[in-house]
């Protein structure tokens, strides 16, 4: 389980970093998205992987880390997903505006 997920995180990171270095804005935006998947999964993994653990308490009940999933990484990742979306949107618009102004989609605004 852990091995597969960490390999997945590794490949996502590698693809993301590779794309970050590319010259086209679109490549960079895809790269950032891939990288944010990797980071989200990484943070999520810090709470250890649990299959079939209840994420929700019984009404009136008290939970513990032995019986339940770790809520903190989940809360962090939930926030990160939304912020990641906002970042993608902003970057996309900056990309389009830069393309409109400079006439190219190179990251430096010129070929």
């Amino acid at each position: 389980m852990e091995l597969v997920l960490s390999a997945g995180i590794g490949v996502l990171t590698a693809s993301g970093v590779w794309l970050l270095f590319r010259p086209r804005t679109y490549q960079v935006i895809i790269g950032l998205s891939l990288l944010s998947y990797a980071v989200n999964l990484f943070i999520f993994g810090m709470g250890r992987l649990r299959v079939n653990a209840p994420p929700v308490l019984e009404p009136g009940g008290v939970g513990g880390l032995l019986t339940h999933t770790d809520p903190i990484p989940q809360a962090l990742v939930l926030t990160a997903i939304v912020i990641g979306f906002a970042m993608t949107a902003l970057f996309l618009v900056v990309l389009l505006a830069s393309r409109g102004f400079t006439g190219t989609d190179h990251v430096d605004g010129r070929e």
Binding site: S6, I9, G10, L12, T13, A14, V17, W18, L41
Partner: peptide
């Protein structure tokens, strides 16, 4: 760079 970053992330997370 990419491979190094990926391997690093993989090792740490594992």
């Amino acid at each position: 760079f990419a491979v190094f970053a990926g391997l690093g992330m993989m090792l740490i997370s594992y």
